[in-house]
Nucleic acid binder design. Structure first.
Lengths: 366, 366
DNA sequence: CTGAAAGCGCTAACAC
DNA sequence: GTGTTAGCGCTTTCAG
């Protein structure tokens, strides 16, 4: 299995420079530069401009971003800093969203993950040395955060969390609406005794989702029964608590904080021989692969908008950086209509985003 | 909610160049360069060298990688290409491993995710323009792959898959050993009727795991009972199939291909009032968060070595690139001993890695 | 032992 | 309209 040091062959592809285009076309490098950067408005004869572009294409010219950045101090790279990536399945989706968004404008992502967090400043410094044009600071659970101070001197956008002091724009899921939509969905499917299965962890997301749950109940004239609410941890304890709730209150619908909670409802349902889709309805949040594979009538998933958050955050960041070639655009209006309430089919609800643009707007206020 | 264009303040930190160190110390830039690159063996008086290093540290000098790369055509960036990141929870762990490994040598990761794959060549080109020193090509499921041709001209390492023609080193989980270890673990815990719950998908990983399962049974003199094996898809069908197996063969131990399969065993167990840890033992593979939270006696998880694969792959790649400052090292010997078989405690088994170094070694042969 | 000079690929004043 | 020049920060001969 070999000590390494093996030789693999790497023949590099020929790389074209402006100089070559210049000599090939019979002009100077500066003219080439002007044309290829679209700064030839009434400065270069459209004749020659055309010729330059032609040979550029023919030779397959691509600018060298490093050389360019040396002059412009703009690299076309975005720094993506994520905490706890390794431990959650969502990082991929956020990164992909940011990636896709970035690539539409020729940007590219330099990623670091700072789990331990003691090395975070060091990592951020590394990104700065590489000259990233701005930072995406992604947290893995929706929460309120302080933008790390080294980032405050650069364009930054916070993803999946809200910046506590509006030091930069931020984007997060609309937790309230998750609770509201989920509950309304159950109500409109005909449920009348809707349980909330939460977590014992003290998460801001839960507070808002539960407020949404209660608001929807209230709005429909359904009473708020504390016996239908429980918050559970893990394992047997969780199973027992959910089981007790089912036995005591016999709910006909469940709104579960996340897939872990859904998991316990599944097991209790199995043990009581209740079938999801026939006897009970369930709305879960998240899309862990295991659960995402499962479909049943009257089983609904609220999808957390990880991809979208990454996408829009990168977009916002690029706007902030002020790429002159692109106009600055507002945050998205991502309120998708609630899906049709066909109670016989599995459904996916898309989650709305909450965005904070600056100190002016407080999108979370309600 | 606000068109953008808002102004945030970004005061850049002062950036120190070699020139400043030179004038500050009263020497020339070239001398500074020599010293700061440790090329001053008997070329620079240790006096001045010391002085230079001192002021460099005092001023907080950090080299500008862009400028350096312009001369050396080495950027210190590794391209990380992953397919299907968004759809699996593992990408994060692989990226983190690669990241950690890279940062120990001052490398940094440029990531792209090519889901659609029609844009893959374009993305790879982008990375090449940015001058990455090499590529990590990560697949999300263990399989045999062809290294994309644009990568063949650069140092590359394949992660979580084996390269079909040994065009470059690759690293993947040892699937056979997963099956073997899992089954032995169950046997040594006292199980005698061990079921295998697989997937209907045609995955190479399953073939090897099942071979490991059978080998362990054979080795212990347990008969290979086809009635104890099933392969299931999703939902009710899966549930029914697993239920039938349980009713017909009453296994005392389960080896599940992945968390999705474990999920069905959980439900059937709940429905039959069988308790994991008391009545049955279960070994699952993977660590989706939902399942990872769950612990029980006689519940064992085989952890796929995503982090480790990322870590070692990046290491291998850097060795390939031939950073002269570091010696080239062999692939890791990551065979962790099987954990103690305390049947009363939940356990995690660490998976061994399979590595292919070149056309010479075929580590998968068995 | 150390410094001057050239140049990596590109951009931006400023001449012509 | 187009070319010349200078220089971004760094490495690397080559003189002294």
């Amino acid at each position: 299995m070999g000590t390494a040091g093996d030789e693999y062959e790497y023949r590099g592809a020929p790389v074209i420079t402006m100089k070559q285009i210049a000599t090939e076309t019979g002009v100077s490098v500066s003219t080439v530069s002007l044309v290829l950067n679209n700064r030839d408005r009434g400065r270069v004869k459209s004749e020659t401009a055309k010729a330059i572009r032609r040979t550029a294409k023919r030779l397959g010219y691509h600018p060298n971003p490093m050389a360019r950045s040396l002059r412009t101090s703009r690299t076309g790279m975005l720094g993506f800093i994520s905490e706890e990536v390794a431990t959650t399945p969502y990082a991929g989706a956020i990164i992909k969203g940011a990636q896709d968004s970035a690539s539409t404008r020729g940007y590219v992502l330099l990623t670091v993950s700072t789990d331990g967090s003691d090395r975070e400043p060091e990592q951020i410094q590394a990104l700065k040395r590489y000259g990233v044009d701005g930072f995406l600071y992604a947290k893995m659970y929706d929460q309120v955060v302080d933008l790390p101070s080294p980032l405050r001197s650069s364009p930054s956008v916070v993803v999946n969390a809200l910046e506590s002091r509006d030091r930069c724009p931020s984007i997060a899921p609309d937790e309230y609406l998750i609770g509201y939509d989920a509950t309304r969905h159950l109500i409109e499917s005909g449920c009348r005794r809707i349980a909330y299965i939460g977590t014992t962890q003290d998460l801001p997301a839960q507070v808002d989702r539960q407020r949404g749950y209660e608001a929807a109940l209230h709005e429909s004239g359904l009473s708020k029964d504390p016996g239908l609410v429980c918050k559970v941890g893990f394992n047997q304890e969780a199973l027992d608590t959910v089981g007790a709730l089912v036995d005591r209150a016999s709910p006909d619908g469940f709104f579960c904080f996340n897939d872990s909670r859904s998991f316990y409802v599944y097991q209790i349902a199995a043990a009581r021989h209740l079938s999801i889709g026939r006897d009970i309805s369930l709305v879960g949040v998240d899309n862990h692969p295991v659960m995402a594979e499962t479909t049943a009538p009257r089983l609904t998933t609220v999808e957390l908008p990880h991809y979208e958050m990454g996408y829009w955050a990168a977009r916002k960041l690029m706007d902030l950086i002020g790429d002159s070639d692109f106009s600055t655009l507002p945050w998205p209006q991502t309120r998708a209509p609630l899906p049709p309430l066909d109670a016989e089919e599995p459904t996916r609800i898309h989650c709305r985003l909450v965005v904070k643009d600056s100190a002016r707007a407080d999108a979370r206020s309600r």
